[in-house]
Design a binder for these strands. Sequence first.
DNA 1: CGATGTTCCGTATCGTTGATACCATCGAAG
DNA 2: CTTCGATGGTATCAACGATACGGAACATCG
Lengths: 255, 255
Amino acid sequence: MLRAAEQQLAASDDNDVSTRAVCEAVGVGQPALYRIFGDKAGLLAALVDHGFERYVERKRALETTEDPVADLRAGWDDHIAFALENPAVYRLMFSPTLTRRPEAPETIFGLLSATLERCARAGVLRLPAPLAAQRILSANVGVALAVLVRPDLYSDPQLSTSVRDAVFAACLDEPGSPDEPAGLDEPGSPGEQGRLDGQGRFREQGRSGPETAGADIGPVAIRLAAQLRAEPSSPLGDEEQQLLLKWLDLLGAGA
Amino acid sequence: MLRAAEQQLAASDDNDVSTRAVCEAVGVGQPALYRIFGDKAGLLAALVDHGFERYVERKRALETTEDPVADLRAGWDDHIAFALENPAVYRLMFSPTLTRRPEAPETIFGLLSATLERCARAGVLRLPAPLAAQRILSANVGVALAVLVRPDLYSDPQLSTSVRDAVFAACLDEPGSPDEPAGLDEPGSPGEQGRLDGQGRFREQGRSGPETAGADIGPVAIRLAAQLRAEPSSPLGDEEQQLLLKWLDLLGAGA
DNA sequence: CGATGTTCCGTATCGTTGATACCATCGAAG
DNA sequence: CTTCGATGGTATCAACGATACGGAACATCG
């Protein structure tokens, strides 16, 4: 029945389905639908949940490499690809007019935050993961809806990648920022979004043990401590500042 | 009649109106509506056009200063403000499920491109205006819809400005790139969504004297805080860690 | 084996909504 | 006064969401 509903949804031009048509396509009466989903909104909610399920499943299937930033980019691109491959369901999933708001987006936030946490562990995340997730997802959905609903207006083949890199650049702290030489990438080959980085940037920290994360915190703590010592004016009091410096030295020593 | 329709639209929870209710509110029969707008989609289209009209009118009312980049930022903020002030109409205007697609968005593109051309004349635009307009508008709509439809998930009061600056940074070539004014605004106070625009946005840029070194402390503190949050294992105790994070946030906020 | 209850399905139906046919009223021209 | 076009309203149709009611199949129990 969900299949039939999705087909009819994709076929219809106004992204709406009638319970009669769905039931007739499956070969049952309307009460069956109402017994199963309780409501038309229930049917649509189930459809949305099914869409989110596929979305999450797909996202989980994306292999996680040792480069969390590359995974982040792949996640963005996969989001766009999902939207373009399932336009009807995507429109429904992110439609501003939803009676029942699904809880799946929180799962999405969780997945995205997980990747972002990996970035944070690598020391390239400049702000808390939840905030970065909000920025990334809102922009991602905006671009997806734009190219989905008005491809005539949003016709730049590099729209997605450029907004992606822009938002990422604001959240991450990459050594060699890609920095957008717009138009170098062949517009005709959008499939390959291009290895802007690649060569295992943080490999030099190298030690494959669990110490890697702690080793990344150290330099940052040392740097901050040095800055604080050089800059006496601080919103903190003297005693607090002393204690903070002590802790930073502790973190810098790597425990 | 448009007023009545808009009121009913704002009142209804599913962003839909019935022709009967609208006509009854005005005091006429349904045929009047169908003679005027021809269709329910026509009524909604007129409503959307009316919304775009106000939007454009508002945008034209924004004074143009000698700083096109500031005007660009004001335009973004005004877009968000319009969305928050007219949620129902905005949802309709940018709803993915629209039968009749209005031509007003092209006017919006024109206005935005005009400001961008001014940026280009000032020598700060890094790419053709139409491409920049696509990036800016798609992200702008995405953020607006996000904070409009799911304020519970997109609760960061700095979401709009941060995405704005990120996208702008990718399109423009500013001498002093703001580069992360995103202080960690207290996550514990999500209730106040308002006024994301901008009372003297980057006032801190006024580098007057030795403060320049202090300006670098913020980002480093934010980064270290993010790393610490992502990496629970720490040589510090829980209470110490909490206090340390609080101080780091304080330093990150620059206050 | 028969009675009873539960579950499921389908037909028929209700209330609402979008959309329209048809008639009434009114003002202007002849 | 008559005629005609225009405008507004009543009644109505078709489709839709939603539900009440009855019947069939199956299981359970006496």
